[in-house]
Amino acid sequence: MNVVIIKYNAGNIHSVVHGLRRIGVEPLVTDDKALIRAADKVIFPGVGEASSTMAYLREHGLDTLIKSLTQPVLGICIGLQLMCRHSEEGDTACLGIFDADVKRFLPQRHEDKVPHMGWNTLTNLQTPLFEGVGTGDYVYYVHSYYAAFCEQTIARTDYLHPYSAALHKDNFFATQFHPEKSSVAGERVLTNFMQL
């Protein structure tokens, strides 16, 4: 299978490469549009800041390319946020694939730490992406911004309040958590994505 990871100005892409190797997939990391279009599966990962990553995608024509893809696409972390309509981070207009807006976590008490970092649970799981993953299974998060609930929410996590742990529309899937760092549950999500 031909799996491409979109190369752009976001960090943490290496850990996704390693995560895919662990499930027996050797991905190609590229920003070549023809190669991305020709892939069987496309992964749009990364850790970064919304306005600078979005500006980079526009400058390189990757914004229109991503929206036009028809094969299964998996956004991870900032990838999920950039696939939403708008992000509060840098007041950024995003790709608008999902009908959700991205907001910053607002701590209510001193103990409420931002970023939300560590292991938290999944509930309300939907779609074959979560086949074999159970309600209450833990996944690993590192993020300060979250996507609100919308009709495309396919998994929920509670931190300060409920938010979208994952989203789905047509061929587009995205997780706010890092499946490549989420032990058995995360490997299951990656494997499920490869079988879509």
Binding site: H14, S15, H18, G19, Y140, H178, K181, S182, V184
Partner: peptide
């Protein structure tokens, strides 16, 4: 380690 371990 990165190729073998699935936690941070």
């Amino acid at each position: 380690v990165a190729d073998r371990v699935s936690i941070p």
